[in-house]
Design a binder for these strands. Structure first.
Lengths: 137, 137
DNA sequence: AATATTCTGGACCTATTTGTCAAGAACTGT
DNA sequence: ACAGTTCTTGACAAATAGGTCCAGAATATT
């Protein structure tokens, strides 16, 4: 469904959403808690940083934190960082094709409902919504 | 969503479903009509043959044909040939995890509806259902 | 039987994804 | 300023997916 990289990114952001406001989490802890190879995670976090989704600080009292409230980070925002235009579900028979009501592929009608459901999930679900601990009390 | 290989397989089977009953289609024609590299398609068709989904005959009047009625070939049957246990939509946060109502991941509830919709689509849609021309009249 | 045709299967190649590693930059506390 | 820490970046390695090619097996026609 999602690439391994996107799964990693979401899991890391969920961990960060569960950190107390104003506090940071080290890459090492994040890696252990989310079950992600530390070296690879550092590249994912760097990309999320460039995208303005998280902030990073170096040094002893550094670490990572969300750059904005978890409720303002949507799943689609995260996935787009890593999968670009392929983030939104496309034609089930050809991911490079435009497939809509005007130019439907033969499976368009049958797949439509699932596609809409998935698209809605990605576009309307925030990190806050899927993090266990609520950041706002 | 699907791997390129699975998309190719579905497109090829749709073409075969639209062939007149009892007739065969050459790999060359299939490759052109479905827009699939001929050399790669031959491996995909060989796998579908070993899985009992299509039959192949060599020689001048040979080619490929469905091994059973298109209505009896479900999308999940095709995809399983190439993606194995990863065919069914799994946990959105970890494709290697068991994620169900007993041991839900934090996103389980929100993703549930989409997951069920996609699973149903794969398990209840046949090649006949998405081939333009109906094979049974 | 010879020939032309088509599928089969293995070897091989290329691109992408995932993962590793280390040097260097940035930050903090002493 | 220095030492200790943490993030950043680029080079590189491993694994997987996608694709090419061709010798050989099977089939039908002559």
């Amino acid at each position: 469904m999602l690439s391994t990289t996107s799964e990693y990114a979401l899991r890391a952001l969920i961990e960060l959403a569960n950190v107390e406001d104003g506090h940071m989490m080290f890459g090492k802890s994040l890696s252990e808690r989310a079950g992600i190879p530390a070296g690879y995670l550092s590249k994912i976090l760097a990309a999320l940083g460039r995208a303005g989704i998280i902030d990073a600080t170096r040094g002893m009292s550094g670490g990572y934190q969300l750059a904005k409230p978890a409720k303002d980070i949507l799943l689609i925002d995260v996935i787009e960082v890593f999968e670009g235009v392929r983030s939104r579900p496309a034609c089930i028979l050809d991911k490079n094709r435009e497939c809509d009501d005007e130019k439907p592929c033969p499976a368009h009608d049958r797949f439509q409902k699932t596609r809409q459901s998935y698209l809605k999930f990605l576009e309307e679900t925030s990190i806050a919504a899927i993090a266990k601990r609520r950041t706002s009390h």
